[in-house]
Amino acid sequence: MSKLITIDLCGDVMLGRGIDQVLPYPSNPQLQEAYATSARDYVALAARVNGPIPAPVELSYPWGFALKEWRHAPPSARLINLETSITRSDTYVPKGINYRMSPENAACLVSAGIDCCALANNHVLDWGISGLLETLHVLRRLGVKTAGAGRNAMEASAPAIIDVAGRGRVLVFSFAHGTSGTPRSWAATAERPGVNLLPDLSEGTAARIAEHIVSSSQEGDIVIASIHWGPNWGYEIPNERRSFAHALIELAGATIVHGHSSHHPLAIEIHRNRLILYGCGDFLNDYEGISGFEEYRGDLTLMYRASIDPDEETLAGLRLVPLQIRNFRLHRASDQDTKWLRDVLARESDRFRTRITCDSDNTLMVFHDAP
């Protein structure tokens, strides 16, 4: 067997609003929200719950324990869903919540060694087309690859290509679906910038996407389909979502379906030795102190480390690192919180014959029990 390719997959990363304010080069804090008029209000909320944040912090500050993990065992590639526009634009889209971070603060992505940002989501166009174009420009300048948004439909649907020295390529295709709150008007067209928006989750759409993925890839590629879908809260996985994920594996040869949008982790399925993460949960946000939905423990999150056999293009192992968001920073989750995450994931994944166990180092290991 060839040396395994390890891919660290993370859910939604929201570096705007409160987090942007504590970094060295904050944007204009003014907000157009019903409950807050300044991004600094979210900094005050977090401080009220977990103590003050000594701003300005270093660019690497939000990643916290994740950096320690990455330094200890660097993966072959790191993928996040970036739910923040990188722009100084003040031309916001009236939609209730608008995330942005300053172009200068975007260097925090480099400090974490992020290889690729999936951009097909419901916040990348929060500051209009000018905000999207600036986001693409900044990420390109920083050397961070992108997928799922572009100057036209062809660019938005093109994969990000990550070369893994001596072992092959990882291709990332990024999609958004309307169930995540992504407006239909944000879809990229031949003439208009936007996101790679799925019209539906039908068999026909799956077949069309599969044809595009197959024509864009070559033998030996590790294919990741990163999809922003579903609501923020709740554990339900509709049959059409599951059928669509299966089709991407069976028709397009996807090795990983990287789902996100839910603010908390969802069930895990291993189908034909390929990985389906229905919802990774938020990886970084500024929600501390916001009440509601406490039963889902949105402060707890996971880093998903998938080990891939490049010869078979299949999953060889999956390790989860439990983390907690506190003071706008990732901390190692406590033993008690790790057990809580294990129990919830085990409960939700049991229907797919997926077993979750706790390893000796208090990480979670994922196994598939064959029927």
Rank of each mutant, 00 (worst) to 15 (best):
Y99E: 02
T182Y: 05
H177W: 00
R167E: 04
C108R: 13
H123D: 01
H177L: 01
S111L: 02
G166A: 08
E104C: 06
I97Q: 04
G131S: 13
L133E: 15
W127G: 09
A107N: 08
H123N: 01
G143T: 10
A158H: 04
G168H: 08
L132G: 12
K145S: 14
F173N: 01
G178D: 05
N122G: 00
R169K: 13
A106G: 05
R167I: 02
E104T: 00
R151C: 10
T146Y: 12
I129F: 09
S111P: 02
A112K: 09
A149L: 12
D163S: 12
Y92I: 11
L136K: 15
D126H: 02
K145N: 08
R140H: 15
S157A: 14
A147S: 13
S157P: 01
M154C: 04
A120T: 06
S130P: 08
C116E: 01
E104S: 15
I162S: 04
S185E: 12
I162Y: 02
R151Y: 10
N98P: 03
V138K: 14
C116R: 04
V138A: 11
M154T: 15
L109W: 10
V144R: 10
V110A: 15
I129A: 08
G96E: 00
S174P: 01
N121Y: 12
V93H: 12
N98E: 10
G113R: 02
G113Y: 03
E104H: 14
A118P: 02
A160I: 05
P159R: 11
A165E: 13
E134F: 11
H137L: 11
W127Q: 14
E104A: 14
R100Q: 11
T146R: 15
S102L: 05
V138D: 09
G96P: 00
R100P: 04
D115K: 10
P183I: 03
A153F: 07
R140N: 15
T179L: 03
T182I: 01
R167P: 00
N105Y: 01
T135N: 15
I97G: 00
T135Q: 13
A147W: 06
N98T: 04
T146K: 14
W127T: 10
A118F: 06
G128W: 05
G113V: 05
F175L: 09
V172G: 03
Y99F: 15
V170Q: 08
C116K: 11
G166L: 01
E155V: 08
A107H: 12
W127V: 05
V164Y: 07
T146I: 12
T179Y: 03
P94Q: 14
S102N: 09
R169Y: 04
A165P: 03
C117Y: 12
T179V: 02
S111R: 14
N105D: 03
G178L: 06
R184L: 06
L171Y: 00
A120P: 06
P94C: 08
L139S: 11
L133H: 10
E155T: 07
G178R: 15
L139K: 15
